[in-house]
Design a protein around this nucleic acid. Structure first.
Lengths: 351, 351
DNA sequence: TTGTAGGCGTTATCAG
DNA sequence: CTGATAACGCCTACAA
């Protein structure tokens, strides 16, 4: 009976209204309030109305921390982007956001600037939330990341690019195919001197995958790949630089067509062309990648390949939701293709 | 002693290694493991080494849910964006992400597509996480949102735009000032017929704030504001549409200068100009807003105002961190200006 | 339909 | 520097 006379200081609380407060006000037990939120159909209409009223008045909001801890289901999804600022990843995030809207899943975001070790830190940080799923945007990880991911108890989805042989779900398209398709577009028009122009940016491994696809198509056609890299960091500058280099090559040895690693590079070239006395596609044809909004409005309109980052993000979210809903969240990894589309415009028309 | 012979089914657990497992392996109590993570200096070097080893081997990661619940400090920051897909918000997110990198704060993201009720849902959802802070990107909320925010126990930061009289922290710049500055730029050159061109997009209230600033400057100069709206949804199309409309007005009644609500609109106009026989700035001068990467490379190079969304996001994160670190997290709301810069280029040079 | 008992994995408090 | 104890706010299991 004797509490030893010593009174322990109350520990710090959130200082908020709890489920018990609401229960007391309604004259029911707290589990009934819990059910009101998680299984309203199990609460009688009368009690339900009373609770609705009280919850409205008190502004009670259930604690996610407590709820997720007790239910052993976090309902958070970690998303690791490479460059949140770029339109590709921004659209991916938007698609994921829309996909999760109303599902009760919360999106945790991390950005890595294409750095593997930042990705590893992000993955590690996310693991602590015991996420319902993890969405990544690359397929080459540090060994530690890879180990963490394989040991994870949640679905892992790799998005944007798709490569064979991965142990995780994938949503996107094979970047190498883009390079192949563009090369073939020019090969089919009879071109034999076709160049691939990118930036010296080792972190942009997707551009390199596209370059590899281009090279394969060239070799398959019995031709020598011609991949050139610009030292400029800025894509528009890189395009302008590549154009300047081209303008100095003898016209009869110049490539008949140039595939730029991105629309931005191609745009840089198009905007710099008048100053160099170059005309597209008369002097040589060009194409890009990304289908930037201005691609269609430029003169000449830019031939490009249109990826669908928004749809990829949306699909990734849907894959997560269906794995969560399905009876088998540990379903074997599947690959979901969200193909690109070749958009042929004036800039790639060879004489 | 008799357990009544009935065995309760074990409740669902996360099925993970816990702090107790690690403690048992190390032969210490679990609180020591907790200290290893939260206050390593309070753990003896010997024990620390042993724990490091064991944590490495087991791959143990502390549960954020449990930790945050127990410590009554969520260490999550909710960010509500209007349009994640646009470069402005993408840069804001990037800045915030970099600002929180390494701080231990997790970013929760929501997107609203400029819809107030989606914002309200997002705020409500975030409240359940008892966030360490909430970052918003507008200052006009539904009454319910506003009430939720005022009742929130965490710092609220409104970003991007800045308006007087709000009860929350603000980081950004007054959009009306941008409109004023551009109007004055043309007024100073002697222009009297100056138009502001925007889209009929009521959700884009920032563009309307810029238009209002423009209108004020016009009135202050004794002139009549001329605000015209395009019905096009797409900004580039809207710019082209406005240009077409302008090209049909009699040259002597045409505006001498047009302020477009965004660079994209201005770009649409510039790209469509050759087709309409219009030349900038000879026929009339133009300016935009946003400093899109191509603005400087177009012909003519586009005069624009450069906002710094990345810096605003970064600053917002820093404000949150300093409030968290400071002894007074309930400091009175402050306004942090991250001013824009007027970038004068060829397109705005009046004869 | 409602309630009781107990635990989810961690950290705050107080005592060595 | 280390540990025992008792929460944090909610939900699962079971019983009525």
């Amino acid at each position: 009976m004797d509490n030893a006379g010593r009174v322990r200081a109350p520990r710090r609380k959130l200082g908020i209204r709890t489920i018990h407060d609401v229960a007391a006000l309604a004259g029911v037990s707290s589990i009934t309030v819990s059910r009101y939120f998680n299984a309203p159909e199990k609460v009688s209409p009368v009690v339900r109305d009373r609770l609705r009223q009280i919850i409205l008045e008190t502004g009670y909001v259930p604690s996610q921390m407590a709820g997720r801890l007790a239910s052993a289901e976090s309902r958070v999804v970690g998303a690791v982007m490479q460059n949140t600022g770029s339109s590709t990843f921004a659209d991916l995030v938007k698609g994921m956001g829309d996909g999760f809207e109303g599902s009760g899943l919360q999106l945790l975001l991390a950005n890595t600037e294409y750095l593997q070790d930042r990705e590893e830190r992000a993955v590690r940080a996310f693991m602590g939330w015991h996420p319902s799923a993890l969405i990544l945007t690359r397929d080459d990880h540090t060994p530690e990341s890879e180990a963490l991911l394989r040991a994870a108890r949640c679905p892992i989805v790799e998005t944007w690019g798709v490569v064979p042989g991965r142990p995780f779900h994938q949503v996107g398209f094979p970047h190498a195919d883009v390079g192949k398709e563009l090369a073939r577009h020019f090969l089919a028009q009879g071109a034999r001197r076709i160049r691939f122009a990118l930036r010296q940016a080792p972190q942009d491994f997707r551009a390199q995958q596209r370059a590899q696809g281009y090279a394969q198509a060239m070799v398959a056609a019995g031709l020598t790949p011609d991949v050139q890299a610009s030292s400029c960091d800025d894509e528009l500058d890189a395009g302008a630089q590549m154009l300047e280099r081209l303008s100095r090559e003898p016209p009869d040895q110049r490539p008949q067509a140039v595939i730029f690693a991105s629309d931005n590079m191609a745009v840089g070239a198009i905007l710099a062309a008048p100053g160099r006395g170059i005309r597209f596609p008369q002097d040589f044809a060009i194409a890009g990648f990304g289908d930037a909004p201005i691609a269609a409005r430029l003169h000449p309109a830019l031939t490009t390949v249109r990826p669908r980052p928004y749809d990829i993000g949306l699909k990734a979210a849907q894959v997560v939701l269906s794995l969560k809903a399905g009876r088998d969240p540990e379903a074997p990894p599947a690959t979901h293709l969200v193909p690109c589309e070749l958009i042929v415009r004036e800039s790639s028309r060879l004489a």
